[in-house]
Simulated assay, not measured.
Amino acid sequence: MSSRGTDVEDAVDSEVAAPARGTGTRRRVGYVAGLFGLLLLLLLGAVVVLVAQGSIAIPIGEVLRVLTGQDAQSQLSRTIVLDARLPKVVAGLLAGAALAVGGAQMQTLFRNPLADPFVLGVSSGAILGASIVILGTSGVGWLSGLGLVSQLGVTGAAVAGAAGVLLIALGIARRVGDPVVVLVVGVMLGYLAGAVVDMLVYYTDPDRLQALATFTRGSVRNVTWNELQVIAVSCAVVLVLSVFLAQPLNALLLGDRYAGSLGVNVRRVHFLSLASVAVLSGITTAYCGAIAFVGLAAPHLARGLLRTADHRVVLPASALIGAVIVLVAEYVAGGNGLTKTSLPLNSVTAFVGAPVILWVLLSGRARRQAG
């Protein structure tokens, strides 16, 4: 009798729990969909506002007509939107998305919440590689005097520099295994790369330093459509690749050995992830300069908002958040047209990245004390 009653109670409990789980799942899906919708609206709003604002303000309605292919009321407005402002906005969008996705992958591969292309010295390696080409050419300005071959040389050098630092950091991570040590080594590699760049600057003709000064501060303001083609194709390929790496990265969250037991080719995932991060860092650094803290802040904000570490949603959310951060930072840095001078993009993104670093450190310490 008691056994029968227990069976009935278990059946009733399961019937009650199933709708509850279903309701929780529906709420979860609705929350995630709503969050992605909000991020898309923020991104579209940032694009429109940044295109509209500048030294010559253009009404938002006129901007929307131009962007949607309708006839513009003024040919000047059309020229400003399509030729002067849209390339930098798209470049900032792609750079932010790429750096954020790269940061999310590095935090998983290195098992370090403070890993990102800038903190681990990857961006510094890209700067070093690109600086060798920029300072060694006869062109002056932000890639303006370089032909297509020289531009690809700058890009290739930036990718090579990023890959070199990344491989050194990964080798040390495998040998040491301590995330703090890896972080310190990455910072030291960044300092070493910066020291080499300073030495190159010391022995370089002063007329060639303006391109490097703009380069190291980070800027998307001078990106042209020709340069954007290289950025767009490279970033699109690597961002699509990150979608296929999402599931293997989820397995790596529990360790390489566990991922291997699930049939994941750990070496291949490491190679593809690191190669994609090197390409993304090199491409964005070559054309947009060093943009710091986006790759660190965006993944943590994505995980915090989504309340999950699932890369299938964290990676696209990080891309959207990174794009929004860069566009808003560009607006604050000078894209609003309210001032004649413009701030370095790095200075503005630091206001987002530095608090996130403090939050990660303090929350990690609080969890350790609670445990």
Rank of each mutant, 00 (worst) to 15 (best):
I134W: 02
G145M: 14
S131E: 04
G161Q: 05
S131N: 11
R78N: 15
V101L: 02
D178H: 14
L109E: 10
S150K: 04
A57H: 15
V180K: 04
V81I: 12
G145S: 07
S131L: 09
A104N: 02
S123Q: 02
G125K: 03
Q105C: 09
A104E: 03
G171T: 10
G141V: 06
I58E: 10
V133Y: 01
L183H: 04
L170T: 09
A158I: 04
D198P: 04
S124F: 05
S150T: 13
G186I: 05
A72C: 15
V122L: 12
D178G: 03
I56E: 15
A126L: 11
I132N: 04
L152S: 15
L143D: 07
V122H: 02
A160W: 00
V197E: 01
G103V: 01
P87R: 15
I134L: 15
V63A: 12
M106Q: 13
P117D: 00
A98G: 09
R111P: 03
L183A: 12
Q73E: 14
V181K: 05
V165I: 10
V187H: 07
R78A: 13
G92R: 03
I60A: 11
G145Q: 12
G102D: 01
A57T: 13
V182S: 06
L99A: 05
P59A: 02
A160C: 07
G161Y: 00
V149E: 06
A162H: 01
I80R: 08
A100R: 00
S55E: 11
P179Y: 12
A195E: 10
L167G: 14
L109V: 13
A84C: 03
R111F: 05
L143R: 09
A91G: 02
L120Q: 05
V101I: 09
V181L: 13
G194Q: 04
V122F: 04
A95K: 00
T137M: 15
Y191H: 10
V159E: 01
V159C: 02
A84S: 13
G177A: 12
V154E: 01
P87W: 07
G96L: 09
